[in-house]
């Protein structure tokens, strides 16, 4: 069990570190007004930026959460930031190519994965844009402390003052990145432990038998995606190995895992208000289930 937990952390740590550094860099070098002005004002433009952001800035699911949190704090609309957070781990060239290879050149599966994730991310982003769904610590008071100051809140991201912005040194940036990594790393470790425990103690024979049932297969494979915490670059290879499972269930597995899993759920509930976190868990789950069921027929027909 310890090996599995350590391997999950080792796999995700470089990506989480990258996301933390990007988040710290956005905080230090990007002016809130400027970034907000560059985002289109219309909903479709905002959505397109969020969906296609992953093509320009591909990042694993662990790294996308701290970055999205920071983008939201910088005034990026939830429709863009939330959509980017959920879509970027899948709608990027690396993951789409790995899906293509894993499924033996099945282009329908690649397109279906991208479509299901795009729809789910867009819907979750739209829900979050319709209320006060910002990050949990969006009020400027306790978050305004500099790395050298006295931050008042234990979970608050480590903001820099406007005087420091753009002038901070590399050590300051690294220190902020480390602080961000520590904040998010806690949830990565807890999620990895939970996932390792499930792998060791779950009755896999029963799970395998249920996954083979045509009626239950999509739900069971989606549950597996949440419990296993497999990285979005590797999950297609795992799904493709389930040879007796219908394509709809394989699609459910590869579409949901990059948006909702044990470690991500911990991060969502830590970073966002409960209401937002629930939206981020429930909306993709429902959307993936429905679309996988629908698109499964099309893939099978092909």
């Amino acid at each position: 069990m310890s090996r599995i937990a350590v391997s999950i952390v080792m796999e995700a740590a470089p990506f989480l570190f990258l996301g933390s550094m990007l988040s710290a860099a956005v905080d230090r070098y990007v002016d809130a007004g400027r970034i907000a002005r560059r985002i289109p004002s219309g909903p479709f433009g905002r959505l397109a930026v969020g969906l296609l952001g992953g093509m320009a800035m591909p990042i694993c699911e662990c790294g996308s959460v701290p970055l999205a949190r920071r983008l939201l704090e910088k005034g990026v609309p939830p429709l863009t930031a939330i959509t980017y957070m959920l879509a970027a781990p899948v709608i990027n060239p690396i993951v789409l190519l790995s899906t293509y290879v894993a499924f033996g050149g099945n282009l329908r599966m690649v397109l279906a994965r991208a479509l299901v994730v795009a729809c789910s991310a867009a819907l979750a982003g739209w829900f979050c844009s319709r209320g006060t769904y910002g990050p949990r610590h969006a009020n400027p008071g306790p978050m305004a402390a500099s790395p050298h100051g006295n931050p008042a809140h234990t979970h608050a991201p480590h903001h820099v003052s406007s005087q420091e912005r753009g002038k901070s040194s590399v050590p300051d940036l690294l220190s902020s990145g480390a602080a961000e990594f520590l904040d998010m790393g806690k949830y990565l470790i807890l999620g990895s432990l939970a996932s390792a425990a499930f792998k060791v103690f779950l009755p896999w024979q029963l799970v395998q038998a249920l996954a083979g049932s045509a009626f239950l297969s999509i739900s069971v494979m989606m549950l597996l995606a949440v419990l296993l915490c497999v990285c979005s670059e590797a999950d297609a290879f795992v799904a493709a190995a389930f040879v007796y499972v219908p394509p709809a269930a394989q699609l459910g597995f590869i579409a949901l895992g990059a948006m909702v899993d044990l470690k991500l759920m911990g991060m969502y509930f830590a970073v966002f208000p409960k209401r937002t976190a629930w939206v981020l868990v429930v909306v993709p789950t429902v959307c993936v289930f429905g679309l996988s069921w629908l698109l499964g027929f099309i893939i099978e027909a092909g």
Partner: peptide, 25 residues
């Protein structure tokens, strides 16, 4: 990257403390 960031953090620590976070690590 983590080594460099950790060294910078040890020299100029930032952010608040969280006992649960320390325990997790």
């Amino acid at each position: 990257g983590l080594c460099l960031a950790a060294l910078a953090f040890l020299i100029r620590p930032g952010g608040g403390v969280d006992v649960r976070r320390t325990l997790c690590f």
